[in-house]
Simulated scan of single mutants.
Amino acid sequence: MRIDRRGAMALGVAGLAAAGTAAAETRAGGRPPDPSETVRLWPNGAPGGERVTVTPVVTERSTSPDFHDRFAAHTRDPLMMVYRPERPNGAAMLLIPGGGYKWAVIDKEGTEIALPLSRAGITCFVLRYRLPADGWAAGPDAPLQDAQRALRLIRARAADYGVDAKRIGVLGASAGGHLAASLATDFARKVYTPADRADQVSARPDFTVLLYPVISMAEPNVHAGSRTELLGTSPSAEQIAAYSPERQVRAETPPAFLVHAYDDNAVPVENSLIYAEALRAAKVPVESHLFEEGGHGFGIRLAAGKPAAEWPAMFLSWARRRGHLGAAR
């Protein structure tokens, strides 16, 4: 199936409804079910958990029968929820929700984005990752361990998932955008001991999508809450530099598609601007869409009726133009 610009726009608009608020889905039974297929990342448990004592919890914030709004805190057994499309086009995406590194919002920036993207033919994997302040030996690298491992598992099992190992992207939102950008810039950094043969493949995403991302750990544009959870209350200058992805961009950093709103009062739009400029300086392809309205954390469902609602269609058009999407089969 050939997806032209008009088709991409239609898919983007349809994606808003597919995220869990469409009237048709509501009449069919309200909240869409979670996929039955999940993948646990680590065969013998997540590394460095000897001193971890937190209790995992998933909290439902939604009071509506039409959609979930859950967040996961203190994850100890990181996993991916798999959304397989009816008509796969060979592309895959690892979706990393935000939550300020204090928790991960499962639905707003995970499942609600996976649904429309899977309908566009993309096999999606929603990541539930560990948090840096929960006592893991790797500290601030614990989330990156999970992101690297997840990308490697998708690539190592590409044939099983029916995806092209050279068309695997990552999408991150807010603090999840920081983790996605860290994966894009630090994919080759050794942050864990290989667990099995899957760790022999590259963790480099082929493309990156960042929604209102946390990027810089430095003033004046830092999201203070994310930095505190990641690096503590008094990080050193060296830590700030090492965990600011814009400072780690290299020529091999994958192309990026950036989405942000100027009226974002939580994560300043400058975070996207400085990452885009770092990519441009390294001659890495980048496309940015900065909207007048949207606020923070809009995902798809909360973008309805705002200029930022156009981002899914814009992304699909960009991804197809760059060859990240293929013909459905």
Rank of each mutant, 00 (worst) to 15 (best):
G110F: 02
A175M: 09
G15Q: 09
A188P: 05
R321N: 13
R197K: 12
H223D: 09
S118N: 14
G176N: 04
A276S: 13
I154M: 05
V222G: 05
K190H: 04
F291S: 08
W318D: 15
A242V: 07
G295M: 10
V52N: 11
A237L: 10
N89Y: 10
R320Y: 07
E310V: 12
V39T: 11
T123N: 14
A241D: 10
A319D: 03
F315K: 01
A147R: 00
L211W: 01
N271W: 00
D77R: 12
A17N: 10
P85K: 12
A156T: 01
R197E: 13
H289M: 08
S64M: 11
P78K: 03
D34K: 06
G323L: 06
A282Y: 01
P143T: 02
L131R: 04
K102H: 13
A327D: 06
A138Y: 03
L279H: 06
G139D: 07
G225P: 03
A304F: 07
M9L: 15
G100T: 00
A256D: 04
L211K: 06
L171G: 06
Y275R: 14
V259R: 00
D66S: 14
G232H: 04
E310G: 06
A28H: 04
L316C: 08
A8D: 14
D69I: 09
G169A: 14
L302M: 12
R130Y: 08
I96Q: 04
H260A: 15
I240H: 01
F125A: 15
V105G: 11
E219M: 08
P88Y: 11
P85Y: 09
Y129Q: 14
P97H: 01
S288F: 03
V13E: 13
L258V: 11
A28W: 00
D186K: 08
A28M: 08
A319Y: 04
N265A: 15
T233W: 00
A120K: 03
P285Y: 04
W311L: 13
T75Y: 00
A198R: 04
L127I: 13
T55S: 10
G323R: 05
T63L: 15
L131T: 11
V54D: 14
D264L: 10
A19V: 08
R189V: 09
E112P: 02
A150N: 00
A327M: 08
P88V: 00
D186H: 08
E229S: 08
A19P: 04
G225T: 05
P254W: 08
V105W: 02
Y212M: 09
R152C: 02
D263G: 11
E246W: 02
S62F: 07
